[in-house]
Design a binder for these strands. Structure first.
Lengths: 411, 411
DNA sequence: ATTAATTTTCTCGACAGTCGAAAAAATGTT
DNA sequence: AACATTTTTTCGACTGTCGAGAAAATTAAT
């Protein structure tokens, strides 16, 4: 049902406008806010004083003295108004970061994961301890952490922070809310990592979204497994994203066994373990290895570049699965630029031809132009950054609803 | 960029709320409006009197005299406030309908298309004449038609009403705006027909959208060609839809030649002509026929039901292409119920097994439950209805912006 | 040092919109 | 004809935005 509009939501929306301007522009003066939001100076005044009273905004009186006239006072977020913990889980390590409400990184440490860690109990117990450590060594109260946002590979439930399927733990599920509720009252979020890589790339390269009419960009993450995120710029300028389990989209019903139990998933052919399987002519029905060192793929890539037919074929087959899969994606969601990230970008030269052929084999691509393909090597930072931005704008949305609420008082 | 909120948009939004309540509930009294929109009685009063003054609403003083107390007066749309022309193009005929602002069908006629009509000039010239006829025989001025909304199979440009590719005219494009602008000043819309079938089904069976968390439903249209529409219920309750060229999604790179020029599209295997080709073992590289009478498929369906292996195989192969294609769709967009329409529903028994197998072979479907599959035989009316509803709610949106505009005065 | 100029920010009254409550309207019942 | 009942309109209070002018804080000129 559509919502009725009241003067109350009116104010909420304009408060949100101010906060989002502050996010995008950093430290901003009264007049700049007024120009950017196209709100009148008077309205900006009432809203900023209100937010200041609530402890969300700070004003910097410091005058850089540029020209004459009354110097501008700049507003910025009150950094201590809220903190978020960002946890990035990869197959090699778990990274813990603490970020304040202004978006500055306050603390970070990483914990290596044991090579063959498959026991979810010890894993989750350690994660819990590490989060407590993050809070304690920064001398925070647990209540000051308003959000714990975790990224991982695998399939994530919608609605609650539960890991449904992951490459390492497979079908053993894990509810992070149940895990962390006892130690802190924060909101717990769990998201597929490639979704935030996509979000981050879309925000940084917003101009690329204009390449086609649908204002979308796809981000493909190539490594041991295959991830995909789609970011869309909506009519109001907000960028939203989602991450379908592209790696487990059926490529060939007669293909090899995938870690998910099905046959012929894209990942079973184009994931690192799939490429190795083809290269070494391992039987299609062998259950694939859980973890393969990057070194091994690098070795066979060298062989392929030196003209070894079988390994060349393995990469070509992987590229074909990826290319045709992307082609199917573009058929369903319309043509859009493609960003590629993950360790697999190192081997793109071996897959390029078959990937591009697959993309090309799409009705709208044949009619229009080839989508732009770009590369992004800093996958970890992209994921962290996307996650952080998403958390902060979530906090902003909560704040604008909590008008006159006493919840935001940690100065 | 996010928009600032002003008291003006506030009023607009509530005007829109009133109009949409009127659309959904039909003829409605003041108090019912107030309850449904949760606006105060006072606000409803000011908005309705405003809309009445603008000639958009009428009030029926007629009292059905139920119980005592002051009788309710009912509001309804002023039917003569606007008219829309709805054109539905199929391979056999073109259907013209005239609908007033209240949504009642005022006139309708159909024109059969010559069996092998491939000349786009004569086709479009006839269409132009037929629209003029629709206006004249209802004694309307061309300006009273505010929208001409056309549906067709094939690929439609986004942004302007141009047909890019169609089964009959293939790559010969046709810009309906250029065609119709000389004879009337209306807004011209062109949409893929299955998109509106999807929209219509989603609106009628809104409860089915709840089957999975993503509030989506897919509609598959089976006939000579293969169409697909996806309808999504957004957070505000509005249902939006789109229609990707699913029929031309790659199924098998080594498959038969499709009408679009590629090899192995779903349609080239599961469209009527694809099924016939497999059944009669026609060479994969033969350019397929443009049109096949329904009778021919019915004949081979009888053969298949009597146990003829080759024709059974043809339908099974078609089902496999559809099922795996749908499985890929569900992988990318999440699990959702599936509605099937078009003449091909008559042969669903011959494809059911392989279709369901394909859908089943999807990570999230295996983890959750099988999506519900439903059948809808009245495809033509679904398309018409979806188109009409979409036009009317578009008109409503225009009206709420044109506050105090003199544009809506045809009483 | 004082005054003028300039730029930014704040304040005040006007206007638009929604809401709750009370008044008015229209009918049925006694 | 007076009263009861239900619906609709009207009125005053409240919240929000806006434009214009006042106030503030600085530099430049006298």
């Amino acid at each position: 049902m559509l919502m009725k509009a009241s003067t109350e939501n009116l104010r909420k929306q304009n408060r949100g406008l101010i906060l989002s301007a502050l996010r995008r522009l950093g430290s901003v003066s009264h007049t700049e806010l007024s120009q950017w939001t196209s709100l009148s100076s008077a309205t900006v005044s009432t809203i900023t004083t209100e937010l200041e009273k609530e402890g969300i905004l700070l004003r910097d009186e410091q005058t850089p003295s540029s020209g004459r006239g009354r110097p501008r006072v700049k507003f910025r977020q009150n950094p201590n108004c809220a903190f978020i913990a960002i946890v990035r889980i990869t197959s090699e390590l778990v990274q813990y970061s603490l970020v304040d409400y202004a978006g500055t990184l306050k603390d970070r440490f990483e914990e290596k994961r044991p090579p063959a860690e498959t026991d979810i109990e010890t894993f989750s117990a350690r994660l819990k301890l590490d989060i407590e450590r993050l809070i304690q060594r920064n001398e925070l109260q647990p209540e000051q952490i308003l959000t714990v946002s975790i990224t991982t590979k695998g399939l994530v439930a919608s609605g609650k922070p539960e890991l449904l399927w992951s490459p390492v733990f497979e079908d053993t599920t894990l509810d992070f809310e149940d895990l962390l509720k006892p130690i802190l009252p924060a909101q717990i979020r769990l998201t597929n990592d490639t979704q935030f890589a996509a979000q981050s790339i879309a925000e940084k390269h917003a101009e690329k979204l204009g390449g086609f009419s649908n204002r979308k960009i796809a981000t493909l993450s190539l490594s041991h497994s295959i991830g995909l995120g789609i970011a869309t710029e909506e009519a109001n300028g907000k960028i939203t994203s989602f991450a379908p389990p592209f790696g487990h989209m059926m490529h060939d019903p007669n293909g090899p066994l995938c870690r998910c139990g099905a046959h012929g998933c894209i990942e079973s052919i184009a994931g690192f373990y799939g490429i190795l399987r083809t290269a070494f002519e391992v039987d299609d029905n062998v259950v694939p290895a859980k973890f393969i060192p990057l070194k091994e793929i690098e070795n066979i890539a060298v062989r392929a570049r030196n003209g070894d037919h079988r390994t060349e074929y393995a990469f070509r087959l992987a590229g074909e699965a990826l290319g045709i899969g992307l082609g199917r994606l573009l058929t369903l969601l319309g043509p859009m630029p493609i960003a590629i990230t993950g360790h697999g970008t190192l081997f793109y030269d071996l897959m390029q031809k078959s990937i591009l052929e697959g993309i090309q084999n799409t009705l709208q691509v044949r009619r229009n132009k080839m989508p732009e393909v770009s590369f992004h090597t800093d996958e970890g930072e992209l994921i962290f950054n996307g996650n952080m931005q998403s958390c902060l704008s979530d906090l902003d949305s909560n704040i604008i609803s909590e008008q006159n609420g006493t919840k935001w008082k940690f100065n």
